[in-house]
Amino acid sequence: MSDNGVVIIGCTGSHSRMAAQSSTLYSTNIRHMMSDLTPEKDGKIVHNMEDDVIRGATAVFGGDITYPPPPPKVAAIAAQKREKPKELTPEEKRAQEIAAFKAQTKNQVTLLAIGGALVLGVGLIAPASFMQHFIVFVLSVFIGFQVIWNVAHSLHTPLMAVTNAISSIVILGALMQIGSSSALITILAALGIFMAAVNIFGGFLVTRRMLAMFQKS
Protein backbone atom coordinates (compact mmCIF):
# COMPACT_ATOMS: atom_id res chain seq x y z
CA MET A 1 0.00 0.00 0.00
CA SER A 2 1.52 3.28 -1.03
CA ASP A 3 0.81 6.75 0.44
CA ASN A 4 -2.23 7.56 -1.72
CA GLY A 5 -3.99 4.25 -1.03
CA VAL A 6 -3.18 2.58 -4.36
CA VAL A 7 -2.17 -1.06 -4.13
CA ILE A 8 0.78 -1.89 -6.37
CA ILE A 9 1.18 -5.57 -7.10
CA GLY A 10 4.62 -6.75 -8.20
CA CYS A 11 7.95 -7.85 -6.85
CA THR A 12 9.80 -5.53 -4.48
CA GLY A 13 13.20 -4.19 -5.43
CA SER A 14 12.68 -4.61 -9.16
CA HIS A 15 15.69 -2.32 -9.80
CA SER A 16 17.95 -5.07 -8.48
CA ARG A 17 16.78 -7.34 -11.28
CA MET A 18 17.35 -4.81 -14.01
CA ALA A 19 20.93 -5.69 -14.80
CA ALA A 20 20.20 -9.34 -15.41
CA GLN A 21 17.02 -8.46 -17.30
CA SER A 22 18.69 -6.02 -19.65
CA SER A 23 21.54 -8.44 -20.26
CA THR A 24 19.04 -11.09 -21.27
CA LEU A 25 17.19 -8.71 -23.58
CA TYR A 26 20.42 -7.47 -25.15
CA SER A 27 21.79 -10.96 -25.71
CA THR A 28 18.49 -12.01 -27.27
CA ASN A 29 18.80 -9.10 -29.66
CA ILE A 30 22.35 -10.03 -30.56
CA ARG A 31 21.41 -13.64 -31.06
CA HIS A 32 18.65 -12.69 -33.51
CA MET A 33 21.04 -10.35 -35.28
CA MET A 34 23.47 -13.25 -35.65
CA SER A 35 20.84 -15.52 -37.11
CA ASP A 36 19.85 -12.72 -39.51
CA LEU A 37 23.46 -12.34 -40.61
CA THR A 38 24.00 -16.06 -41.23
CA PRO A 39 20.85 -17.24 -42.99
CA GLU A 40 22.43 -20.57 -44.00
CA LYS A 41 23.41 -21.34 -40.39
CA ASP A 42 26.92 -22.27 -41.51
CA GLY A 43 28.80 -19.46 -39.83
CA LYS A 44 29.32 -17.50 -43.07
CA ILE A 45 28.20 -13.90 -42.82
CA VAL A 46 25.91 -12.75 -45.63
CA HIS A 47 25.75 -8.98 -45.39
CA ASN A 48 22.34 -8.26 -46.91
CA MET A 49 22.03 -4.49 -47.36
CA GLU A 50 18.39 -4.92 -48.41
CA ASP A 51 17.50 -6.12 -44.92
CA ASP A 52 16.12 -3.26 -42.83
CA VAL A 53 17.71 -4.43 -39.60
CA ILE A 54 21.16 -5.06 -41.04
CA ARG A 55 21.13 -1.88 -43.14
CA GLY A 56 20.17 0.14 -40.06
CA ALA A 57 22.96 -1.33 -37.97
CA THR A 58 25.67 -0.81 -40.61
CA ALA A 59 27.89 2.23 -40.33
CA VAL A 60 30.68 1.25 -42.78
CA PHE A 61 30.36 -1.30 -45.59
CA GLY A 62 32.80 -2.12 -48.38
CA GLY A 63 34.98 0.93 -47.59
CA ASP A 64 32.09 3.40 -47.83
CA ILE A 65 30.54 5.24 -44.96
CA THR A 66 26.89 4.18 -45.09
CA TYR A 67 25.79 6.17 -42.07
CA PRO A 68 23.07 7.48 -41.65
CA PRO A 69 20.87 4.68 -43.01
CA PRO A 70 17.67 5.49 -44.96
CA PRO A 71 14.44 5.25 -42.98
CA PRO A 72 13.31 1.64 -42.67
CA LYS A 73 10.71 0.41 -45.14
CA VAL A 74 8.47 -0.88 -42.36
CA ALA A 75 7.74 2.69 -41.30
CA ALA A 76 6.31 3.39 -44.72
CA ILE A 77 3.79 0.57 -44.27
CA ALA A 78 2.81 1.72 -40.82
CA ALA A 79 2.39 5.30 -41.98
CA GLN A 80 -0.61 4.49 -44.16
CA LYS A 81 -3.57 5.75 -42.21
CA ARG A 82 -6.77 3.83 -42.12
CA GLU A 83 -9.79 5.60 -43.41
CA LYS A 84 -12.27 6.27 -40.71
CA PRO A 85 -15.60 4.55 -41.22
CA LYS A 86 -18.23 7.08 -42.16
CA GLU A 87 -20.85 7.96 -39.60
CA LEU A 88 -24.13 6.70 -40.95
CA THR A 89 -27.41 8.52 -40.62
CA PRO A 90 -30.26 6.49 -39.08
CA GLU A 91 -31.98 6.22 -42.48
CA GLU A 92 -28.86 4.86 -44.14
CA LYS A 93 -28.38 2.38 -41.31
CA ARG A 94 -31.94 1.20 -41.62
CA ALA A 95 -31.61 0.80 -45.39
CA GLN A 96 -28.41 -1.20 -44.87
CA GLU A 97 -30.06 -3.48 -42.34
CA ILE A 98 -32.97 -4.13 -44.66
CA ALA A 99 -30.58 -4.88 -47.52
CA ALA A 100 -28.59 -7.28 -45.33
CA PHE A 101 -31.77 -9.01 -44.22
CA LYS A 102 -32.95 -9.36 -47.80
CA ALA A 103 -29.59 -10.80 -48.85
CA GLN A 104 -29.72 -13.27 -45.95
CA THR A 105 -33.24 -14.33 -46.88
CA LYS A 106 -32.22 -14.80 -50.49
CA ASN A 107 -29.23 -16.91 -49.40
CA GLN A 108 -31.31 -19.07 -47.13
CA VAL A 109 -34.06 -19.62 -49.71
CA THR A 110 -31.48 -20.53 -52.37
CA LEU A 111 -29.79 -23.04 -50.06
CA LEU A 112 -33.13 -24.52 -49.04
CA ALA A 113 -34.21 -24.81 -52.68
CA ILE A 114 -30.98 -26.56 -53.67
CA GLY A 115 -31.10 -28.86 -50.63
CA GLY A 116 -34.77 -29.65 -51.16
CA ALA A 117 -34.23 -30.39 -54.83
CA LEU A 118 -31.34 -32.74 -53.95
CA VAL A 119 -33.41 -34.63 -51.37
CA LEU A 120 -36.33 -34.90 -53.78
CA GLY A 121 -33.97 -36.12 -56.50
CA VAL A 122 -32.65 -38.86 -54.22
CA GLY A 123 -36.24 -39.73 -53.30
CA LEU A 124 -37.09 -40.32 -56.97
CA ILE A 125 -34.43 -43.03 -57.33
CA ALA A 126 -33.98 -44.55 -53.88
CA PRO A 127 -36.43 -47.03 -52.32
CA ALA A 128 -38.57 -46.11 -49.30
CA SER A 129 -36.49 -48.08 -46.81
CA PHE A 130 -33.44 -46.04 -47.74
CA MET A 131 -35.37 -42.78 -47.51
CA GLN A 132 -36.26 -43.53 -43.88
CA HIS A 133 -32.57 -43.69 -42.99
CA PHE A 134 -31.84 -40.74 -45.20
CA ILE A 135 -34.49 -38.50 -43.61
CA VAL A 136 -33.04 -39.22 -40.17
CA PHE A 137 -29.60 -38.32 -41.53
CA VAL A 138 -30.78 -35.04 -43.10
CA LEU A 139 -32.67 -34.00 -39.97
CA SER A 140 -29.74 -34.78 -37.68
CA VAL A 141 -27.38 -32.78 -39.87
CA PHE A 142 -29.80 -29.87 -39.78
CA ILE A 143 -30.38 -30.02 -36.03
CA GLY A 144 -26.68 -30.44 -35.37
CA PHE A 145 -25.93 -27.35 -37.44
CA GLN A 146 -28.58 -25.22 -35.73
CA VAL A 147 -27.66 -26.37 -32.24
CA ILE A 148 -23.88 -26.19 -32.52
CA TRP A 149 -24.13 -22.73 -34.07
CA ASN A 150 -25.41 -21.37 -30.75
CA VAL A 151 -22.70 -22.90 -28.58
CA ALA A 152 -20.73 -20.32 -26.63
CA HIS A 153 -17.14 -19.92 -27.82
CA SER A 154 -15.72 -20.54 -24.37
CA LEU A 155 -17.49 -23.90 -24.30
CA HIS A 156 -16.04 -25.37 -27.50
CA THR A 157 -13.60 -27.64 -25.65
CA PRO A 158 -16.35 -29.22 -23.52
CA LEU A 159 -18.42 -29.44 -26.70
CA MET A 160 -15.69 -31.56 -28.29
CA ALA A 161 -15.64 -33.82 -25.25
CA VAL A 162 -19.41 -34.24 -25.07
CA THR A 163 -19.82 -34.90 -28.81
CA ASN A 164 -17.04 -37.45 -28.42
CA ALA A 165 -19.01 -39.13 -25.64
CA ILE A 166 -22.23 -39.06 -27.68
CA SER A 167 -20.46 -40.52 -30.71
CA SER A 168 -19.96 -43.66 -28.62
CA ILE A 169 -23.58 -44.41 -29.52
CA VAL A 170 -21.90 -46.79 -31.97
CA ILE A 171 -21.89 -49.13 -28.96
CA LEU A 172 -25.50 -50.01 -29.91
CA GLY A 173 -24.28 -51.60 -33.13
CA ALA A 174 -21.75 -53.70 -31.23
CA LEU A 175 -24.38 -54.69 -28.65
CA MET A 176 -26.62 -56.00 -31.43
CA GLN A 177 -23.80 -58.02 -32.97
CA ILE A 178 -22.19 -59.63 -29.96
CA GLY A 179 -24.64 -62.56 -29.82
CA SER A 180 -23.56 -63.83 -33.22
CA SER A 181 -22.70 -67.47 -33.82
CA SER A 182 -19.38 -66.52 -35.42
CA ALA A 183 -16.48 -66.22 -32.97
CA LEU A 184 -14.73 -63.53 -34.98
CA ILE A 185 -17.81 -61.29 -34.91
CA THR A 186 -18.26 -61.83 -31.19
CA ILE A 187 -14.64 -60.90 -30.46
CA LEU A 188 -14.76 -57.78 -32.62
CA ALA A 189 -18.10 -56.74 -31.14
CA ALA A 190 -16.75 -57.30 -27.62
CA LEU A 191 -13.76 -55.08 -28.38
CA GLY A 192 -16.10 -52.48 -29.83
CA ILE A 193 -18.29 -52.50 -26.72
CA PHE A 194 -15.28 -52.16 -24.46
CA MET A 195 -13.76 -49.26 -26.38
CA ALA A 196 -17.06 -47.42 -26.72
CA ALA A 197 -17.72 -47.88 -22.98
CA VAL A 198 -14.33 -46.35 -22.15
CA ASN A 199 -15.31 -43.44 -24.29
CA ILE A 200 -18.80 -42.99 -22.85
CA PHE A 201 -17.64 -42.82 -19.25
CA GLY A 202 -14.39 -41.02 -19.97
CA GLY A 203 -16.07 -38.50 -22.26
CA PHE A 204 -18.84 -37.48 -19.87
CA LEU A 205 -16.47 -37.35 -16.87
CA VAL A 206 -13.99 -35.20 -18.77
CA THR A 207 -16.80 -32.85 -19.79
CA ARG A 208 -17.93 -32.55 -16.19
CA ARG A 209 -14.39 -31.85 -15.04
CA MET A 210 -13.99 -29.16 -17.67
CA LEU A 211 -17.32 -27.53 -16.82
CA ALA A 212 -16.44 -27.55 -13.12
CA MET A 213 -13.66 -25.11 -13.98
CA PHE A 214 -16.27 -22.58 -15.14
CA GLN A 215 -17.73 -22.41 -11.64
CA LYS A 216 -18.38 -18.88 -10.47
CA SER A 217 -15.56 -17.94 -8.12
Binding site: S167, I171, G173, Q177, N199, G203, V206
Partner: peptide, 23 residues
Protein backbone atom coordinates in the same frame (compact mmCIF):
# COMPACT_ATOMS: atom_id res chain seq x y z
CA UNK B 1 -7.17 -37.57 -23.67
CA UNK B 2 -10.17 -36.49 -25.73
CA UNK B 3 -8.20 -37.19 -28.91
CA UNK B 4 -7.15 -40.70 -27.90
CA UNK B 5 -10.63 -41.56 -26.68
CA UNK B 6 -12.07 -40.33 -29.94
CA UNK B 7 -9.78 -42.71 -31.80
CA UNK B 8 -11.35 -45.57 -29.82
CA UNK B 9 -14.80 -44.63 -31.13
CA UNK B 10 -13.46 -44.61 -34.67
CA UNK B 11 -11.98 -48.08 -34.20
CA UNK B 12 -15.23 -49.34 -32.66
CA UNK B 13 -17.15 -48.04 -35.69
CA UNK B 14 -14.72 -49.86 -38.02
CA UNK B 15 -15.24 -53.12 -36.08
CA UNK B 16 -19.02 -52.75 -36.20
CA UNK B 17 -18.81 -52.24 -39.96
CA UNK B 18 -16.56 -55.30 -40.43
CA UNK B 19 -18.91 -57.38 -38.31
CA UNK B 20 -21.96 -56.41 -40.33
CA UNK B 21 -20.13 -57.36 -43.52
CA UNK B 22 -18.95 -60.73 -42.18
CA UNK B 23 -22.43 -61.50 -40.87
Amino acid sequence: LVAIMHSLVGLAAVFVGFNAHIE
